[in-house]
Amino acid sequence: MDLEVRHLRVVCAIAEAGSLTRAASALGLTQPGLSAQLRRIETLLGGTLFDRRQTGTVPTPFGELVLGRARAILPGIDGLLADTGRATRRLRAADQIRIGSVGAPLLGHLVLAVKSVLPAAEVTTRCEYAPVPLLDDLVAGRLEAAVLGDHPDQELPSREGIALHPVATEPVFALLPDAHPLALRDEVSLSDLLDEDWAVPRPDSDRTPEYWSSVCALTGRRPYTPYEADGRQLIELVRAGLAVSLCQANFIEAPGTTVRPLTGNPLWYRHVLAWRHDTPLDAHAPEVLRRVTDGYLTTSALSPVYTRWRAGRGQG
């Protein structure tokens, strides 16, 4: 086995984390897998890199030597990769646009907008439940554009080279089983909703459950969340009458479910478009934003509940 750049990154990650367990978590590996990899690296280099102690891992003198060289080498390699990545993107930017999206009603409109302003481009898409991994992929050059979202006091961080364009901010509504007594009301109070069992998205890197819980805490209570699910599975739990949940205002009611506004609009969601400044999309920003915003309004009109809510506030 020859020494590779990834081996140096592993050594630096262990030193930075101070333990194999924390380093494994940061690298997305299992602790036994990382331990085995470290042993192979130590065999390759010919010495022990870390002392394993109850309090964690500490570099040996030999490890300090390797770390010093690795920390001197890796920035240059990262710079090379960044430069070649930019050059590669410039070469292929006109014919490949990779788009990521959270679960929001903007993806189709963004694809149509890209195809309109860049008709020769090959457009591909993939989805995630959380916005931060998509933002990281934009920064790393693995995506050219993305549909993201955030909440008040949880705004997406600005990243160098990335444009963030808000499209719309909308209230969060209640998602109820059709047969639930609260479904008979025109709107539902958050306090009444807190008397029910909730289904919530997986936390992962999506802070939506945290935001919901923090707003609920202002009432002096927190939701009881025995069910954790995403997408279709969450809807099925609500449809079955097992739980209530929350949804985006323009969510189109699935059979067996009812959407209702929350009294006083205590929760909000912001739709955001993001793309790299070094892609051809940046030159078409006003046109892309116009097309996606128009598409959002068209989609929102398909939700009778949201349409009535908007009309009641002069936003028809």
Rank of each mutant, 00 (worst) to 15 (best):
residue 245 S to D: 08
residue 182 L to R: 05
residue 278 D to T: 04
residue 195 D to H: 15
residue 216 C to D: 05
residue 286 P to I: 06
residue 127 C to D: 11
residue 298 T to I: 05
residue 256 G to S: 09
residue 107 L to C: 06
residue 1 M to P: 12
residue 211 Y to Q: 01
residue 268 W to M: 07
residue 248 Q to I: 00
residue 290 R to W: 10
residue 141 G to V: 07
residue 290 R to E: 14
residue 97 I to E: 01
residue 75 P to S: 05
residue 70 A to K: 09
residue 231 G to K: 07
residue 71 R to M: 08
residue 210 E to V: 13
residue 82 A to G: 09
residue 25 S to W: 10
residue 131 P to R: 05
residue 268 W to Q: 11
residue 40 R to D: 11
residue 126 R to K: 14
residue 179 A to E: 13
residue 204 D to W: 07
residue 222 R to H: 11
residue 135 L to K: 03
residue 304 P to S: 02
residue 177 P to N: 02
residue 153 D to H: 14
residue 164 L to N: 09
residue 81 L to F: 10
residue 37 Q to D: 04
residue 293 T to S: 14
residue 23 A to N: 02
residue 113 A to S: 03
residue 13 A to E: 04
residue 195 D to A: 15
residue 179 A to K: 12
residue 178 D to T: 15
residue 305 V to D: 00
residue 78 D to I: 02
residue 37 Q to A: 13
residue 205 S to W: 01
residue 195 D to C: 12
residue 77 I to H: 00
residue 167 V to Y: 00
residue 114 V to W: 10
residue 81 L to R: 15
residue 175 L to C: 08
residue 55 T to I: 07
residue 288 V to N: 03
residue 10 V to Q: 10
residue 181 P to V: 08
residue 1 M to K: 09
residue 143 L to I: 04
residue 129 Y to P: 05
residue 114 V to P: 06
residue 60 T to V: 06
residue 312 G to V: 03
residue 44 L to G: 08
residue 184 L to N: 11
residue 173 F to M: 08
residue 286 P to N: 08
residue 55 T to M: 09
residue 249 A to P: 03
residue 59 P to F: 08
residue 22 R to L: 12
residue 270 R to H: 03
residue 135 L to W: 07
residue 282 D to Y: 11
residue 7 H to R: 00
residue 267 L to G: 00
residue 161 G to K: 08
residue 280 P to G: 01
residue 199 A to R: 03
residue 305 V to I: 12
residue 84 T to F: 12
residue 166 P to S: 04
residue 264 G to R: 05
residue 8 L to Q: 05
residue 6 R to C: 01
residue 169 T to C: 09
residue 35 S to Y: 11
residue 214 S to Y: 09
residue 121 A to H: 04
residue 73 I to G: 01
residue 161 G to M: 08
residue 264 G to K: 03
residue 198 W to K: 01
residue 42 E to H: 00
residue 303 S to R: 13
residue 24 A to D: 08
residue 275 W to S: 00
residue 284 H to R: 14
residue 104 A to N: 06
residue 242 L to F: 09
residue 161 G to I: 09
residue 303 S to K: 12
residue 224 Y to F: 13
residue 102 V to P: 00
residue 243 A to V: 02
residue 290 R to K: 12
residue 129 Y to L: 13
residue 127 C to R: 15
residue 125 T to F: 07
residue 49 L to C: 04
residue 116 S to K: 13
residue 185 R to M: 07
residue 136 D to K: 11
residue 31 Q to N: 12
residue 27 L to T: 06
residue 276 R to F: 04
residue 174 A to C: 09
residue 43 T to F: 00
residue 55 T to Y: 10
residue 193 L to Q: 11
residue 145 A to Q: 06
residue 311 A to V: 10
residue 277 H to N: 11
residue 287 E to C: 05
residue 308 R to Q: 15
residue 308 R to F: 08
residue 37 Q to M: 12
residue 124 T to S: 15
